[in-house]
Design a protein around this nucleic acid. Structure first.
Ligand SMILES: [Zn+2]
Ligand SMILES: [Zn+2]
Ligand SMILES: [Zn+2]
Ligand SMILES: [Zn+2]
Lengths: 136, 136
DNA sequence: TCATTTATGTTATAGCATAACGTCACCACA
DNA sequence: TGTGGTGACGTTATGCTATAACATAAATGA
């Protein structure tokens, strides 16, 4: 777990603070969680956090988890994934596992093609219990 | 489109009102949208709607769209689907297309099996433009 | 009958997200 | 040089989404 969390050099101050907060968290954080962690660094308003999150998500450095109204740092530390990303969220420990699956993506593409639907983005979130929490 | 929207007989009054509101809507409705539609029927508080929605979602008569914080009636009018359900949400006209895909479900099951993750529920939502709105 | 459960109604509050305003720094280019 | 465009920033106020807590009433079932 002791990896470096190097931030891209061209982030603004607020973006860097927010990404750093996400990187150092064990699990997803809401925008208000992040704000609370960063009050000591001078952040005062939700919008400061939301604006930074918008940029980070846009660049693929962070992801929004729709079913939690929360955010995580991208788990792919350097080469941020393209295409469909799925998240497995453990209800027990709160950890999030990020993965990509080409087969699912292709399958979805087939459905969209057949329907004439133009996909812009896809949310895929699995809720349940991770191996550790299921107590196998 | 002129189908009957028969409601299950054992719904409570509030559940029936809420499901009926969803059935008669062209697109997803937020809990507050529903509340506004039902004020004339005596509903006054968000909780009345949320409680009804909880039951409807539990029974598969309605679905929650996480990426919209909104709800739709199940499109499978009588035999409500089991298992993984996906939603394609059009950003243009707001319509939602509900579908199931066994291949995706199986693929997800494989991933979960390999990881020891116990899946409890899955959210899958595609955002984009439907055939009509993409203007083919 | 009486305990249990389930639905209901109401008020208040918590949690998530954006509108609307103004300021400032930076950069392209006239 | 300056001037307009762009994008980040800060602040206040507001709106939307969801639940806590408490009281009441109806249905269920030994
Ligand atoms: Zn990622
Ligand atoms: Zn876990
Ligand atoms: Zn359905
Ligand atoms: Zn459309």
């Amino acid at each position: 777990m002791a990896h470096s969390h190097d931030l891209p050099a061209d982030l603004t101050r607020n973006q860097g603070l927010v990404l750093s907060a996400l990187n150092h968290s064990e699990g997803p954080l809401s925008a208000y969680d992040i704000l609370d962690k960063l009050r000591g660094d001078g952040l005062r308003a939700p919008l400061q956090v939301y604006r930074a999150l918008d940029k980070l998500v846009e660049r693929g450095l962070a992801h929004r988890l729709e079913s939690l109204n929360a955010f995580v740092a991208c788990a792919d530390e350097h080469c941020h994934r393209k295409g469909l990303i799925a998240f497995a969220i453990c209800e027990g420990c709160g950890k999030v596992d990020e993965f990509a699956d080409g087969v699912i993506e292709e399958r979805l593409g087939d459905w969209a093609g057949a329907k004439g639907f133009r996909v812009e983005r896809t949310t895929m979130e699995i809720r349940g219990k991770c191996g550790a929490c299921v107590g196998v």
